[in-house]
């Protein structure tokens, strides 16, 4: 499916536990194994609270896993400190859902987009005007927006500023956590056209979290589905609706509101109680809500098993990948 020589970043057995006020342990990510390939996009979807942001935050050192390693450029980046960490940071950048909360409202757009370049001494103070203009034009904003403040722009424009800033250092990897959710569909379309064009030109690797399945499958090379801290299915992006077979992935697809749907159809929520990360059951994490649950699902956790090229699933109904 993907050429292993293009493997750029690999998460191995990554687990994150948080302690809670009641003293119980919360498992936000459980033995996550994922690979990011050069110039490709990994889309990550899953239930609210299942650990998507927790995982992506490791890649930009906003948090560290409790166990496991994340290999990039031959190093386990979760162990980096000091100078090495500072140097590595410029290669991986992140765009958040709401850029207004991550911008300093008192700074002009010029200073916002140039800040990372100045931090790494890539440009001199006197070059800011020219560089800001170039970056803004790259994301199809007028160069004189450099003089504006963030609150004088619409959400769509601010999001493009956030992208320009993230790309300023020419990173190898860009992580986008619901970076387009607040945009109207037409602006969303222009933003994704822009991102995929820049990806082709600069061979950027992207990790993208998003709840809109139609949207994420339009630009992802691989899609990973997460449930209660576990990756339950990974598949090629262009075949999401035809290949997906994990019962949770299917439930997701069935819950999509579409402009061509039958509007008289009653909404059937996914059955059972929402799962608690404080109380992850033995066996399959989806067992209590699965309508195909078998006895073995309550005893053994299914592991991700490749069932066709590029398609892995963790379900006892598929493959025979049963862990001890």
């Amino acid at each position: 499916m993907f050429d292993e020589k293009d493997l750029l970043l690999e998460a191995r057995h990554v687990t994150r536990r948080f302690s809670t006020p009641s003293g119980r342990e919360l498992v936000a990510c459980n033995d996550v194994n994922l690979k990011l390939y050069r110039g490709k996009t990994l889309g990550l979807v899953g239930e609210s609270g299942c650990g998507k942001s927790t995982f992506m935050r490791f890649l930009v050192w906003l948090d560290r896993p409790t166990e496991g390693e994340i290999l990039y450029r031959g190093k386990d980046i979760t162990k980096l400190k000091g100078r090495q960490l500072h140097d590595m940071r410029q290669h991986i950048q992140m765009v958040f859902q709401d850029p207004s909360t991550s911008f300093n409202p008192k700074m002009k757009i010029r200073d916002i987009v140039c800040e990372p370049l100045l931090n790494y001494g890539r440009i001199r103070h006197s070059q800011r005007d020219e560089k800001a203009r170039e970056l803004l034009e790259m994301v199809e904003l007028p160069g004189d927006f450099a003089d504006r403040y963030p609150h004088n722009m619409s959400g769509g424009q601010r999001q493009r500023v956030a992208i320009a800033r993230a790309l300023a250092l020419e990173p190898e990897i860009v992580v986008m956590d619901e970076a387009t959710s607040a945009l109207d569909v037409s602006v969303q379309e222009t933003v994704i056209e822009l991102i995929t064009r820049l990806q082709r030109e600069k061979n950027i690797t992207i990790g993208f979290i998003c709840h809109n399945l139609g949207f994420i499958q339009s630009f992802s090379h691989q899609i990973a589905v997460m449930y209660l801290g576990n990756i339950v299915e990974v598949m090629p992006g262009d075949q999401l609706s035809s290949l997906c077979c994990h019962p949770y992935s299917k439930a997701l697809l069935n819950a999509v509101f579409d402009t061509k749907m039958d509007f008289s159809r009653k909404i059937e929520p996914i059955k059972g109680e929402p799962p608690s990360p404080l109380d992850v059951p033995v066996g399959c994490p989806f067992q209590d809500r699965c309508d195909q649950c078998m006895p073995i699902c309550r005893e053994r956790r299914p592991v991700l098993t490749e069932i066709s090229p590029g398609h892995e699933v963790a379900c006892h109904r598929y493959g025979e990948g049963v862990s001890a």
Binding site: L213, G214, L240, S242, D258
Partner: peptide
């Protein structure tokens, strides 16, 4: 029309 046309759908347009 432009807005409706831009609505992403499963199995729809692809950019990559």
């Amino acid at each position: 029309r432009k807005l409706i046309k831009a609505v992403p759908s499963l199995g729809g347009k692809r950019y990559v």
